[in-house]
């Protein structure tokens, strides 16, 4: 399958602080890929590198086969960019901003933008600076939909949105991406929203990628195991076990291994009344990265 994004051996430092080293991943065409990670693991750094606003210390990032730092300006026509906080030109109104962007994109779909604007029920001359964050998110989304790019890069699309606008945003985006076979690379700090939208996820920890796989595979294979243990219990065999913890005699641990094998292993080590729990994306994320 053709890769739209291909990042190879990305290494980046802020001063002497290493963010990550030799990070590699790719995003195939038509996939919606979510980048998940705790604060400070380098999500924004990755988005900045991908959108061409940060030169990595080493490594390269190709989009449509072109190195992002030397990308031909015309290629950017096929990349829709949503900046954190749905930032748009505050000094323009919704008509001016549509007119402005339409001049740069030959495939511009004016109707797609105005359809979303009709839902907002704002006057055409209303300045963006006077809009709520939710309204601004719709303007930003409408502009990206009208641009009709092959790749959308969305930085924390849920920031500042109430549940209604988040749902509206996710539903519109999901419908658009699936019907038009678009590729999306996104981050969000609200993982429930991602679950409704993404096909595949990359989960990052400090300095590395913990896993990249389709969301369905992750949710099917990654489980939490709970049971009771005696005082002073310690898991002796931690192979392929994630974040074991004990709180008041209640034991829990996460694993990708087959359910049967894990239950047998835990039982043999002294975990009593052991059972497995299916996870949502947020729980799976915590299972992989830990609570703290």
């Amino acid at each position: 399958m053709e890769n739209i994004i291909e990042c190879r051996n990305l290494t980046h430092y802020y001063g002497k602080r290493k963010i990550y080293e030799d990070l590699s991943f790719s995003v195939p065409k038509g996939r919606i890929l979510g980048l998940l990670g705790k604060n400070g693991t380098g999500k924004t750094t990755t988005i900045n590198i991908l959108s061409g606003y940060l030169q990595p210390h080493s490594g390269e990032c190709l989009i449509f086969g072109e190195n992002i730092t030397k990308m031909h300006p015309e290629t950017r026509r096929e990349i829709g960019l949503l900046i954190e906080g749905h930032v748009q030109y505050q000094f323009m109104n919704i008509e001016q901003i549509e007119k402005f962007y339409s001049a740069f994109y030959p495939k511009w779909k004016r109707e797609a933008y105005y359809e979303l604007m009709r839902r907002l029920q704002v006057a055409p001359g209303q300045s963006i600076s006077r809009m709520s964050c939710g309204q601004r998110s719709q303007v930003a989304l409408g502009l990206i939909l009208a641009q009709d790019p092959e790749l959308l890069v969305l930085d924390d699309f849920s920031l500042g949105l109430d549940p209604g606008y988040r749902r509206l945003f996710v539903d519109y985006l999901s419908e658009y991406a699936h019907s038009e076979n678009k590729t999306i690379f996104l981050t969000s700090h609200i993982i429930q929203d991602m679950e409704r939208l993404i096909d595949e996820c990359i989960i990052m920890d400090y300095g590395r990628i913990l896993t990249q796989q389709p969301v369905n595979d992750l949710l099917n294979n990654f489980r939490r195991y709970e049971g009771r243990v005696a005082d002073g219990f310690s898991l002796s065999d931690k192979t392929d076990m994630y974040n074991p913890s004990i709180y008041k005699g209640e034991f829990e641990v996460y694993s990708f291994l087959p359910e049967k094998d894990v239950l047998a292993n835990l039982d043999s080590q002294g975990v009593r009344e052991c059972y497995s729990v299916n996870l949502g994306l947020e729980d799976a994320f915590i299972g992989l990265t830990g609570k703290y």
Binding site: S51, G52, Y53, P73, E74, T75, R76, R77, I79, L81, I83, G85, V87, Q88, Y89, Q90, F91, F104, Y105
Partner: peptide, 19 residues
């Protein structure tokens, strides 16, 4: 200043024109 407000300049530089 409006371009630098919340790094709006990123929008301008993302236009399909050389920076």
């Amino acid at each position: 200043v409006p371009e630098m407000h919340r790094k709006c300049l990123k929008l301008t530089l993302h236009l399909p024109v050389s920076y």
